[in-house]
Nucleic acid binder design. Structure first.
Lengths: 124, 124
DNA sequence: CAATTAGTTTACTTTTAGTAACCTGGTATA
DNA sequence: TATACCAGGTTACTAAAAGTAAACTAATTG
């Protein structure tokens, strides 16, 4: 979806179709989905909402997600500035992950999704 | 995330960790994401918000998505009762896709995502 | 010393996504 | 009448992402 105006299709005098305001690149919704819609990404953000959580605790909380994907998602989120990784101790190594302000800004959309999902009892 | 109570991790007297209210199955957010978070799914729903759209028009509107994936997503959405497929004419064949009430109920979440996405100028 | 915790990383398999060409029919233009 | 385009898909094939299970370093507990 283009940021200005709605997308429509017009037909010229020869029956040829032309698209007005097409999405030549992924639209805002598509971009947003690619940021918070990856598998487990939303759940990870949501589980960090109450404060810092350690890696393996997150792993235990998210039954069904593998360590590999949690690690990958956390790195993506860190790279986008949505999550902050802090080493709280060497020997023994301990790390926590928490939301940044930007990360926190996604919580409303995610909570709306949770409400929608529960209300309509959606099944994946 | 469990529907009741927040997920936490407790440690017993022997240092063993136990998760309270873990997600033994994908939580609501995860389920919701799997319904509207698939690649192009959100965009497709959003482009149907103003009424019935024909297959190839949708294809033209969604620059970047292939017919195959649009077809696949429409079938998924139809299977979930979010989209209605109607053959409006044989000879020449013409089909339209439109949102059902349930499909329409997802528009708010998607529009919130669009607003969040534009406000923070997220880049996929 | 064996078991367990933490935080990854690796190797490998399975699932999804994506591209581009093709197909059946119909209609419009030259 | 050819040829080019329309509609609504399907097919075959490739590439990218996700999932599984085990391994690894280093420390701690019993």
């Amino acid at each position: 979806m283009s940021e200005k105006g709605k997308t429509t299709v017009e037909t010229d005098g020869y029956g040829r179709k032309k698209t007005i305001n097409a999405c030549y690149e992924p639209c805002s919704i598509e971009k947003g989905m690619r940021v918070i819609g990856g598998k487990w990404t939303g759940s990870i953000i949501f589980h960090l909402k109450d404060g810092p959580v350690r890696f393996n605790d997150l792993n235990r909380m998210l039954g069904g997600a593998s360590k590999k994907i949690i690690d990958q998602r956390l790195k993506e989120l860190e790279g986008r500035g949505m999550v902050l990784r802090t080493v709280i101790s060497d020997r023994p190594v301990a790390v926590t992950y928490e939301l940044t302000e930007f990360g926190r800004s996604a919580l409303k959309v995610l909570d709306d999704l949770r409400v929608w999902s529960e209300k309509h009892n959606v099944q994946a």
